[in-house]
Nucleic acid binder design. Structure first.
Lengths: 138, 138
DNA sequence: ATGCAATTGCAAATCATTTTCAACAAGAGC
DNA sequence: GCTCTTGTTGAAAATGATTTGCAATTGCAT
């Protein structure tokens, strides 16, 4: 499900100009299955087109975020990492040794969260659940 | 429960010198029941002793964090906020309108987290659960 | 092809936080 | 109480991630 988003189309539809560098960044992004940070995207894009600047990577990320096309995650002690927004909601388990990000979902946790917030008299707008751990031995 | 931690005693026992400015910062901190950020602590401490610098606030926070006396929370889009580490583990609900931080706990959520991590082959070292919401109307 | 507003790269600016460094002050020992 | 040693301080500069100002450039509608 939810494969290779066509960011170019979305932006174009929003009246945004698709420049050469933007096209490269968007391609890099839709070819990514991990959770790269701006520098990582910049490196990948640079290899394809050296004229891409880190500034434009940031500008494009902000643009896509505003359009709701990607999500920005600020995991502890590190730069923001980005991912497609098209997939279903999920939380993250971060491998403390490798930095790898594993996605997971739990309807039960989601339900409990809503329950807790309600008890406190609140409605959840969004939440952040991150598990930091290491591979269990054995 | 868990009231007015005596940071001074802890630091002194660790061989740390209690300077005039440090004493002020520690007092401000143990008099706080909220989740102030470095600038907030600096402002409160400054009023008591103008010789306290923001630098020293940061240095003292880092020190207390290393000694395990306080916890640092980086809520989204803002500076780190600190709180006593003495109380039991809890998660946070952040009021999007006021910035107020409400603490809560849920053994069920904790258990579910461990369960999920285990299924993925991981052991949780720590986690972060933050609910961002607004007061429910009615 | 033309024109103009959107976009670019670079450098400088921000923001939170840390580090450098010379001046200063805890507090152990006398 | 006085010294001495070494930790600590404030101010300013450095960091790291990200944003912004600006003059030059370039999509792309016409």
């Amino acid at each position: 499900m939810s494969e290779r988003p066509n960011y170019e189309q979305v932006l174009r539809a929003a009246g945004v100009r698709i420049t050469r560098q933007r096209a490269v960044i968007l391609r890099v992004l839709s070819d990514s299955d991990d959770h790269p940070d701006a520098m990582g995207i910049f490196r990948r894009a640079s290899r394809i087109d050296p004229s891409v600047s880190l500034t434009t990577v940031y500008r494009t990320m902000k643009l896509l975020e505003e359009k709701g096309e990607i999500h920005r995650h600020a995991f502890e002690g590190g730069p923001s990492r980005f991912e497609h927004a098209d997939s279903d909601h999920h939380d993250h388990l971060i491998d403390l040794d490798s930095g790898e990000v594993i996605e997971f979902t739990s309807d039960r946790i989601e339900a409990l969260q809503r329950e807790i917030a309600a008890e406190l008299g609140y409605e959840i707008v969004h939440h952040r659940l991150e598990l930091y751990g290491r591979k269990a031995k054995g």
